[in-house]
């Protein structure tokens, strides 16, 4: 187990578990809720096959520490600087070459929802509640929610959530595409781990990372460039698999040959 400020990290069955841990609300001290270099250090492990982000205790996260935001807003450049760092952190998570699941129990508001939106999957317990309440304080989501939410839920539903500040249930979030899987009451974490293991347990790390890279390319690059990248990634895996099959064949030949030679002589 590794400890940061209000966040912990551990590895279970090759899956990294990042826990927001300032219960019960798991407020985020800063937009950059964990220093990016520290996260990179924790994830610098070639055997990792996935990452799950969860909250300690009952809730995922109630979002940013607004008191701090308003204090920083008084200092020129201070707020912008921490916001940019927050963006960089979420961008890093979004572009990771292992699948990332947000395991959402109960409250997932504001900055918490920003983190969840940067993940590749959102698993919500049936009693989860999601919202961008910033508008109630005359603010707006500031860490990418304004473009990540429309990308999955469309402009209309996003405008409703962001301008209305409404709290959305897990079932409703599933309907608009914001949530990918619904878990039983308070079981988002268990469900997420199971889903992650289903996706990764039997897959070599390289296959997982190559598929993730291809998906990233398909979103970031033009079709031609993505195609060339995909072909290269595919051929690397195929070369590995080809070599593995040859070794297997040779081993079979080695173990069966002596007997057959004797027979033939």
């Amino acid at each position: 187990m590794y400890y940061g400020k209000n966040v912990t990290f551990e590895i279970i069955e090759s899956i990294g578990i990042l826990t927001l841990s300032d219960p019960p609300e798991n407020y985020l001290p800063l937009p950059e809720f964990i220093p990016l270099p520290l996260l990179q250090d924790w994830l610098n492990n070639e055997t990792l096959k996935g990452l799950i982000i969860r909250g300690e205790g009952r809730n995922f996260s109630a979002g940013g520490d607004l008191g701090k935001i308003f204090t920083l807003a008084g200092q020129p450049a201070g707020l912008e600087d921490v916001m940019v760092k927050g963006h960089e952190l979420l961008r890093y998570i979004e572009l990771m070459d292992i699948p990332v699941i947000a395991a959402i129990n109960r409250v997932c508001f504001g900055g918490g929802l920003e983190i969840a939106l940067a993940c590749h999957f959102r698993v919500a317990s049936e009693n989860a509640l999601l919202a961008f309440p910033e508008v109630n304080l005359n603010l707006m989501p500031g860490m990418g929610g304004t473009y990540r939410l429309p990308a999955i839920a469309g402009t209309f539903q996003s405008a409703r959530m962001i301008l209305g500040g409404d709290i959305v249930s897990a079932a409703r979030a599933r309907e608009i595409g914001l949530v990918d899987h619904i878990a039983p009451k308070d079981k988002a974490w268990e469900y997420s781990l199971e889903l992650m293991l289903k996706m990764t347990r039997e897959r070599p790390v390289k296959v997982i990372r190559h598929v993730m890279t291809a998906i990233r390319n398909s979103i970031l690059l033009g079709r031609e460039e993505a195609a060339a990248g995909e072909v290269r990634l595919f051929c690397e895996l195929a070369a590995d698999e080809s070599a593995r099959r040859k070794t297997e064949e040779n081993n079979t030949v080695l173990t069966t040959n002596p007997a057959s030679n004797i027979g033939n002589d």
Partner: peptide, 13 residues
Amino acid sequence: TSFNLMPGIGGIG
């Protein structure tokens, strides 16, 4: 992926 490969002709995108 069940064969340790990945889709290679644009299927992913």
